[in-house]
């Protein structure tokens, strides 16, 4: 088997505070993420998913256990190693306003490559490529403050892409966006994954978003509750509700109908699937 891109080995993490007793946010996480995977990590607030995100590039390091990126441990005092890790794993956060550094789109996208000390021509090439990949090239000279929230988030993703990472981790990037922008971000990520082979780790609390990924990891109270393809994960309606998550309507209807004795396929995720299986049911009964 190929060496995993990112590997969590029995990771525990506690937030230390001077006054109160430490809060355990991650409890024994073991997780492997391979080249080019398309993963969603889902959980409600306080499930530890953001803490997990910050372990991917060494912003936080485990209290015990270890995180390896391309075989390199994130718990290192060697700056070069940490830079190598951050070059490989890009990060995008929830609020685009608090992660963009420059007032102008292309200047912001250039920030990362400039930090790497690349020659100007190479930076320009990467910036243009990243903006084009996110359909933002025509906005390259725009002021950030004139963009919509969704466009700002695409700029932030372009900024991560310009580092030529193996993997991009996005921590609830759509939480503040309207449905239209949400869809645009999701579609862009899918394209990056399919066309550029970049592994995507997408953190969310929305089931309706998670269903679009190839693999879903459900977190609850600092632990991984489920890990598998969405069809498999979402068929376990009770476990999901226990984790405080909203079940997609199509999935819920399917589950309720099964309970009433209708042979609807378990793990129905999308509207289309449900409608098709209902139509089949009708013609067979």
């Amino acid at each position: 088997m190929l060496k995993p891109l990112v590997e969590f080995r029995n990771v525990f993490f506690s937030y230390q505070s001077a006054s109160a007793k430490p809060v355990e946010a991650l409890r024994g996480i073991s997780l492997q993420i391979g080249q080019g995977e398309f993963i969603s990590i889902i959980g409600q607030n306080g499930s530890g998913k953001s803490t997990l995100a910050r372990h991917f590039n060494g912003l936080l390091t485990p209290t015990s256990g270890e995180v390896l990126v391309a075989g390199l441990s994130t718990a290192t005092s060697d700056r070069k190693q940490l830079l190598e890790i951050r070059k490989r794993v890009g990060m995008v956060f929830q609020n685009p306003d608090n992660q963009l550094i420059s007032s102008i789109v292309e200047e912001d996208v250039a920030f990362g490559p400039e930090n790497l000390g690349l020659p100007p021509r190479e930076i320009r090439k990467r910036v243009n490529h990243a903006l084009a990949a996110l359909n933002m090239f025509k906005y390259r000279r725009e002021l950030i403050c004139h963009l919509s929230e969704g466009q700002k988030q695409l700029v932030a993703i372009a900024g991560a892409l310009a580092m030529k990472p193996d993997c991009i981790v996005l921590d609830e990037p759509t939480a503040q966006l309207d449905p239209g922008s949400r869809k645009q971000v999701l579609e862009s990520l899918k394209r990056l994954n399919r066309e550029e082979g970049i592994a995507i780790v997408f953190i969310t609390h929305l089931m309706s978003e998670a269903v679009n990924f190839d693999r879903v990891v459900v977190m609850d109270r600092g632990e991984i509750k489920m890990d598998g393809p969405p069809g498999e994960v979402f068929s376990q309606v009770e476990l999901l509700e226990e984790a405080g998550l909203d079940i997609p309507v199509a999935t819920r209807l399917a589950a309720e109908l099964r309970e009433r004795g209708y042979p609807v396929a378990p793990g129905t995720l999308h509207v289309e699937e449900l409608v098709n299986s209902l139509c089949q049911l009708r013609s067979s009964t």
Partner: peptide, 14 residues
């Protein structure tokens, strides 16, 4: 930090 900023030294400009 996530975008590899480590201070001014070694930076280039587009």
């Amino acid at each position: 930090e996530s975008r590899c900023y480590t201070g001014g030294a070694g930076r280039t400009k587009m």
